[in-house]
Amino acid sequence: MKGASVVEYEVVGGVARIHLNRPRRLNAVVPELVEGLNAALDRALEEEVGAAVLAGRGRAFCSGADLKRREPPVSEAELRRRMQRVQDVTRRVRRVPFPVISAVHGYALGAGCEFALACDLVVAARDAVFGFPEVSVGRGVTGGISHLLPLAVGPARAKELVLLGERFGAERAAELGLVNRVVESGKHEAAALELARRLSGLPRGAVARAKYALDRGAQSGIETAFEVEVDYAVAARLSEESERAAEEFRNRKKEED
């Protein structure tokens, strides 16, 4: 897999484990890391995993763009292509049918914060530090954050986070609605894997439809949301997977009674 040296990939029990692997540079973003991450998500789709966990090796999840690495000058077209490849990470997370969970510790800054928040669920260690420092270093946000962040925290708070670029911890991220679970430092991957295993064990078609419906509903009007919900609910009820899940539920209830 292209970029394998800086992005590690394995599947255990139907769950893909994807690790950013530039620990000496706090997993700072370079083109080969972006390519490796896109390739890992493609591979997880091909292998039909039930869920995926994205984490970082070493002391941080991802510290953002590697500003210390001197890149040779590139054309505007190549620069645009590279920015679009960063956005492709978010596109892939949104398009794959399985949930992607980020397990965040240490720094999650700039593009690293975007990678984390693009995921369907976010588990953060108490030592996690989030932030969008792009404006302060003369850069711009990517990864769909200009759309996703206002949806999550509201436009006024989104402007505050991006324009001021202040760092904030895991508890604050949870208060803002950006993080699902805050766990003790060092427990973030275990907690994310537990969620991934639970999700992987659920009816996969139902999980995929729920994920797509929620994403589309958040980005459209209520009438479109109504239509999508009905389409997906009908498809779920007519599926063999739904019948099996219903029968298992009935059997459990009999045992409990």
Rank of each mutant, 00 (worst) to 15 (best):
C62K: 09
S63M: 11
G64D: 01
D66N: 12
K68W: 09
R69Q: 09
R69W: 15
R70W: 00
P72Q: 07
P72E: 07
V74R: 14
S75E: 03
E76L: 11
E78R: 08
L79G: 13
L79Y: 12
R80N: 11
R81L: 10
R81Q: 12
R81I: 15
M83H: 12
Q84M: 10
Q84I: 15
V86P: 11
V86D: 15
D88I: 01
T90K: 12
T90E: 15
T90V: 06
R91P: 05
R91L: 13
R92D: 04
R92N: 04
V93I: 13
V93N: 11
V93G: 07
R95C: 09
F98R: 05
F98I: 11
V100D: 01
I101E: 01
I101V: 09
V104C: 11
H105F: 06
H105T: 01
Y107R: 15
Y107N: 14
A108V: 00
A108H: 03
L109E: 07
A111V: 10
A111L: 14
A111T: 08
A111C: 14
G112T: 01
C113R: 04
E114M: 09
E114R: 08
E114F: 06
A116F: 00
L117W: 07
C119T: 02
C119L: 07
C119K: 09
D120S: 05
L121H: 10
V122Y: 00
A124T: 04
A124L: 10
A125T: 11
R126S: 15
A128C: 07
V129I: 14
V129W: 02
V129T: 10
F130L: 04
F130W: 05
F130C: 06
G131I: 04
G131D: 02
V135H: 11
V137A: 12
V137Y: 12
V137D: 06
G138W: 12
G138C: 06
G138M: 05
G138I: 07
R139Q: 10
V141G: 03
V141Q: 04
T142S: 15
G144R: 06
I145N: 00
H147E: 14
L148K: 08
L149K: 01
L151T: 02
A152W: 09
V153C: 11
V153E: 05
V153Y: 07
G154W: 10
G154S: 09
G154I: 13
G154F: 12
P155K: 15
R157P: 05
R157A: 14
A158G: 05
A158T: 05
E160K: 07
L163E: 08
G165S: 03
G165Y: 03
E166H: 09
E166C: 13
F168N: 00
G169H: 03
A170T: 00
E171F: 13
E171S: 11
A173R: 03
A173D: 05
A174Y: 06
E175V: 02
N180T: 04
N180W: 08
R181C: 06
R181P: 01
V182S: 04
V182R: 05
V182W: 00
V182T: 04
V183L: 00
E184C: 11
E184A: 12
E184I: 15
S185F: 00
G186S: 02
A191P: 02
A191T: 06
